[in-house]
Computed example of a mutant assay.
Amino acid sequence: MAVLVTGGAGYIGSHTVAALLEKGEQVVVVDNLYQGHREAVLGGKLYEGDLRDEAFLSRVFEENEIDGVIHFAANSLVGESMKDPGKYYHNNVYGTLCLLEQMKKSGVSRIVFSSTAATYGEPERVPIDEYDRTVPTNAYGETKLAMENMIRWFDVAHGIRSVSLRYFNAAGAHDSGRIGEDHQPESHLIPLVLQVALGQRETISVFGEDYPTDDGTCVRDYIHVSDLADAHILALKRLRDGGGSAIYNLGSGKGYSVKQVVEVAREVTGHPIPVSMEARRAGDPAVLVASSDRARRELGWKPARERLEEIIASAWRWHSSHPHGYEN
């Protein structure tokens, strides 16, 4: 029996594939390589194609005995989603519908969904827990919430049990040094900061310093990508053990401001990393920090790399040895 990982050539997906392989799992990867990288898939069977292609997806399920699905495939840029929401609904929501329909047809009844804490929008309290209201402030978060709801109704109607994992910013790289973060274009804070240290950009742009936070910049939760991979595997184990559908937050419970991230990166890299202050971006909440108490209690999730210094040092090792990503 195999685990199907959609978007498994992407950043978090590839780290999850690596973790599954380390545990002796058979892995099937589906990725259209729009944002993913063939070189990031360290093993298993890779199918290049799109979830919205019915004939392609049917072939994947026919050729493999799939035990469960871990679903990462989605567009995920907040700014882009605000400019082109249709793209996000078509790829994220319709793509997930196609996947669920194929799972129903093939009798596959377990799915772990890589959601986002952007489903909460501007939180009423911090840290956020799973029972807080979900009012997304951007189209990306809205599509992820729609995907969660669709998955829930497929459980009600067809018995496809699910675990949805909501989290914020993934960062860092695999201990082997073989895979790491490479987006084109890059939009995540930590790799952008490290590009300044590598001499690939002159400054790091900080969007807004008038938020209601200690230093005026946005506060976010950061999780090491390998800890996220472990959480997805633990969620799959819950479903294999007969557990019912559930939603879990993943987070450190501690937030770091943009200015704090820059300062830690200066310490790790030894580079001054100049800052350029810019206007706020549409759809950016001031503080996003999640409580992962439920995941720790029910899934047994124990992050191994919670310190921001460890996370950034891990990312720095990858970017230093792969200054141009997988195109090195």
Rank of each mutant, 00 (worst) to 15 (best):
V219I: 07
L308F: 13
N75A: 14
L42D: 00
A231H: 05
F113E: 02
G177F: 01
G253C: 02
R307P: 08
E22L: 07
I204T: 13
A279S: 15
A286C: 14
S81F: 02
T269H: 13
A157G: 06
Y167I: 01
S76C: 10
V206E: 05
V126I: 15
P274G: 13
A229C: 11
V78W: 04
A157F: 14
Q102L: 01
G325K: 02
N92F: 01
E122F: 08
G159P: 03
I70D: 09
S257V: 07
T119P: 10
K237G: 06
K104F: 00
I179K: 09
Y131M: 15
G107Q: 08
F56G: 02
K104V: 04
A73D: 03
R166P: 08
P127T: 00
V261R: 10
G270Q: 01
W301T: 07
M103K: 01
L228G: 02
Y131N: 14
G270I: 09
Y47L: 01
I66V: 13
Q35P: 00
H90S: 13
S276Y: 01
P123M: 00
Y88A: 00
E148I: 09
E65K: 14
Y47R: 00
E48L: 05
V93G: 14
F72I: 13
G8T: 06
R38G: 07
